[in-house]
């Protein structure tokens, strides 16, 4: 009886696990939609690793349940002494090692495209040297500093906005990520883009949004007691709307305070 209960409990783990994942998308438990050019690559990598892990998980769980069933104390009251198997140990060391190497080599190209200097866009209006804006993270908000008319960041005609980062759709957007006080992390789930912001460092980050809309920007590094409320928004707009927004920001910036 106990053998059956233990077997059923153990076999329920892979069955319920697989069931949860199969049903996740229907219940909206899965990722938000992917709205950047490299987001499908990230999702592909995620799925690749997940299927690999899922396969191993199911095999080991089923094996575990089978061993519990097959070698219960009641049926095998006498143990067998063994020194182990050198061959078996070689196999279960080599297979994970190969699997890890496969993962490492598979993701390298995508990682390089997103994070390496060589992967950054060189054509188009924004480059590593000429970013669309500086993104400042501080306890506990996000601020965005656009270069203004002279196209140079850090000068008096820079325009600043808080909370909302407006960028054009379908264009490679490069920004410089900076932190004022402690480590923060830029995370926009829809873009599958996460990057730590370090005080004292200027970190270039790029993405290309594929769909207009407003997306949550959150801090993904526990940065203090107000971390939970460190929210921002990335608004992706058409090129015309972006120009109109910059004009509006400029008018607000050089306003004479009349209402």
């Amino acid at each position: 009886m106990m053998r059956l209960i233990a077997f059923l409990l153990l076999i329920a783990v892979p069955i319920l696990g697989v069931y949860t994942f199969v049903n996740a998308q229907e219940h909206n438990w899965w990722f938000p939609p992917a709205y950047s050019t490299f987001a499908p690559d990230i999702d592909w990598l995620f799925n690749f690793i997940m299927y690999m892990v899922a396969f191993t998980f199911i095999v080991t769980e089923v094996a575990l349940a089978w061993f519990v069933w097959q070698y219960s104390a009641k049926r095998n009251d006498k143990g067998v002494f063994t020194h182990g198997s050198h061959k078996l140990e070689m196999i279960w060391t080599a297979i994970p090692a190969v699997a890890l190497l496969v993962i490492a080599f598979t993701q390298m190209e995508t990682f390089a495209k997103i994070k390496f200097a060589s992967g950054f866009p060189t054509d188009g209006p924004y480059t590593r040297e000429k970013p669309i804006a500086e993104v400042w993270a501080s306890q506990f908000d996000w601020r965005f500093r656009y270069p203004g008319d002279d196209g140079v960041l850090g000068t008096v005609d820079d325009l600043e906005s808080s909370f909302e980062f407006v960028v054009p759709v379908g264009v490679n957007v490069v920004f410089h990520l900076r932190a004022r006080d402690v480590i923060h992390s830029w995370f926009v789930p829809e873009f599958r883009l996460k990057q730590d912001a370090l005080p004292g460092h200027t970190i270039p980050v790029w993405f290309q949004a594929t769909k207009e809309g407003s997306y949550d920007l959150v801090c993904a590094e526990l940065c203090g007691w107000g971390h939970y409320k460190m929210a921002g928004r990335v608004r992706v707009v058409s090129a015309q709307e972006f120009d109109a927004y910059m004009a509006e920001l400029k008018a607000k910036w050089f306003s004479n305070g009349k209402e």
Binding site: D141, A231, R233
Partner: peptide
């Protein structure tokens, strides 16, 4: 009212008062 609203809308840079535009 407008002065207070601006503080809530923009936050106060360099302090723990964030923008509440959400």
């Amino acid at each position: 009212r407008a002065d207070l609203y601006t503080i809530l809308d923009e936050g106060v840079t360099g302090t723990a008062m964030p923008s509440f535009r959400r």
